[in-house]
């Protein structure tokens, strides 16, 4: 029932939904990039990296959507529904990417804890012992 409603809304309001999915993902990427470039606190920079990851995953799943498609799972009684499924390959890639993004975030945060114990600050413009 939800696919038919989504389908007819998609046909009528094509521009808005395209703007919604693609525009939101690009906006998330730019907001995260601003946080990585401009902020001084290390935890804020890692938050920005996490938001960039969210934007990229939304873009991938949004590209793999097909108009009028359904979820790629064969239910009992519907084994011939392979013509009407959405693209399953980007979803498998995004599944791996989410787990790896979490692993990278956790290692980065443990490095920040270690750095704070040594320098007693978490701002990057006061960690100056490597400068000449």
């Amino acid at each position: 029932m939800m696919q038919e409603e989504f389908n007819e809304i998609f046909v009528k309001y094509h521009e808005i939904i395209t703007l919604g999915v693609y525009g939101t993902s690009i906006a998330l990427m730019l907001i995260g990039l601003y946080a990585v470039l401009m902020k001084k606190n290390l935890v804020k920079i890692v938050i920005g990296l996490s938001i960039i990851d969210a934007g990229i995953h939304l873009l991938f799943v949004g590209i793999g959507y097909i108009r009028g498609g359904t979820a790629p799972i064969f239910s009992p009684g519907y084994e011939n529904a392979a013509n009407r499924m959405v693209d399953p390959v980007p979803q498998a890639l995004v599944l791996t990417a989410i787990v790896i993004g979490f692993a990278v975030t956790s290692v980065a945060l443990s490095l920040i804890i270690r750095l704070y114990k040594h320098h007693n600050t978490a701002k990057i413009d006061q960690i100056k012992s490597l400068k000449w």
Partner: peptide
């Protein structure tokens, strides 16, 4: 999509991939 049911007999396509 077309070979998951015949060869692997798995209902979830993403698991098979």
């Amino acid at each position: 999509l077309s070979n998951t049911v015949e060869k692997s007999r798995v209902a979830n396509v993403i698991t098979a991939i």
